[in-house]
Design a binder for these strands. Structure first.
Lengths: 242, 242
DNA sequence: TCAATCAGAATTGTCGACAATAGAAAACGG
DNA sequence: CCGTTTTCTATTGTCGACAATTCTGATTGA
């Protein structure tokens, strides 16, 4: 295999000849994605050499990426035993939803105080457009838009820390959210809640907006359990790629 | 220097012959501490080899620790340029305080709902005891107790995610807090606020407790500026160890 | 049959080496 | 004298190697 000088990024996945991208960040992003989507089974031990081979790099960048993901709570770690996929359980989802609720509340209220009319109008328009095209989007794309709606509000809050924390939560509940989006889709329930929230924001009606947001986010333990049940089914049924 | 087989942890700092401690975790903890206390100057570039030499290890564990600290926002990173100490500025402190306020509010309300009488009584007692001995504590110890007071409440909330996020914020504002503790001390202002909060919790008076907590945490931009000013003075005046 | 013990295999932890990149200093030209 | 280019040096990025640890599963003894 005569080692190449400094691995010329031989683009293993997807034939995109677009960007070279440093291996470090690329590896991090790739593993992060895998963890978000539970491509590792819950609590599964992650074999460093196998993963390194799969991504065509040595263990160093793998380990560095994994360490980062540990503090993002997407991965766990035990000394001398290595890295593991996080678990997938109801409590965590419920707890995260609770934290999320208070952060979204603050986020929204600050946005109402600080955002300009134009910015809020743009939010409404963007979501209206998204809904109009909803049918043409895949579930993954729709989930991404859902996430983006909330992040946009967080950005309008003017507090980057708030946005950062919400993004952290988002990556951790991404899988759950995707399941919920698909459930919505099956029942052809449209996402009118976002529109209502955005309109209340335009009207600078903080309390109404906050109430709508809260109801939108709130998740009963029963709902969480049902979602987890479905999630576990997918994780263990879907055949891994390759 | 005839390399030793697997570095026998020759205990560079402090003569503690207590625990062996794996180098990985040790290094992480040590660098984390340095970052918390701004032993690196704000925005200073961190030299990996120098740091490795200082801690008597190779660059691998250093880099892994630094990567973790990047996602904890104690360190920044730029590809091909390396790691840097985070900045030290007013906006960040104000923004973090704002987030902290909502998390502490939630934390406290959940604790009031869920904690037992015994747990809340223990909180009051512990703080009373701490205050009684306050004079015998160093500023560092007192700061640690201050932090612990809030973390205990977060634990009583029963939501580990809440506690985790507050801990994350605590590590980032640790330096600021220490300065505030010393300011209090100079003015011999006693920390009665904690006692009042705890007592309101015992009385299950959520709104009063929350109001007290909010006032306790709230920081005006002017205050933040003054604290930052003092902080910068310390950072650049204190001579680094060795 | 089952628990405990003990090789042998697999995996992690840390290291030193070296190429690629960025940064600093020197040489150059105006 | 100052801005630009070039050369040299310092630093980061990634790798393969090997010791230490954990895991596996085979063997033993009750």
């Amino acid at each position: 295999m005569l080692r190449p000088t400094r691995q010329s990024n031989q683009d293993n996945n997807a034939a995109s000849a677009s960007k070279p991208i440093k291996t470090g960040p690329r590896v991090y992003e790739e593993i992060r994605r895998m963890a978000m989507d539970y491509r590792f089974k819950p609590n599964e031990r992650i074999n460093e050499v196998a993963l390194a081979a799969r991504l065509n790099v040595s263990r160093s960048p793998i380990r560095e990426a994994l360490q980062r993901l540990v503090t993002e709570e997407l991965i766990t770690f035990q000394t001398n035993r290595g890295f593991f996929c996080r678990g997938f359980d109801v409590d965590e989802i419920v707890n995260l939803s609770d934290v999320r609720a208070v952060l979204e509340d603050r986020s929204l209220r600050l946005a109402i105080q600080r955002a300009t009319n134009e910015e809020l109008a743009a939010l409404v328009d963007w979501w209206t457009l998204t809904m109009a095209r909803a049918d043409s989007f895949s579930s993954a794309e729709l989930t991404a838009r859902d996430e983006e709606f909330h992040i946009r509000i967080a950005r309008l809050s003017g507090n980057p820390e708030l946005a950062r924390m919400l993004e952290g939560i988002n990556t951790r509940i991404h899988f759950v959210r995707k399941i919920e989006v698909e459930k919505h889709r099956r029942l052809s329930t449209t996402y009118t809640e976002h529109s209502e929230i955005a309109r209340a924001m335009v009207a600078r009606d903080a309390d109404s907006a906050a109430r709508l947001m809260h109801d939108h986010i709130a998740i009963s333990v029963a709902d969480a359990m049902s979602t987890v049940r479905e999630g576990l089914a997918r994780i263990y049924i879907d055949v891994g790629q390759i």
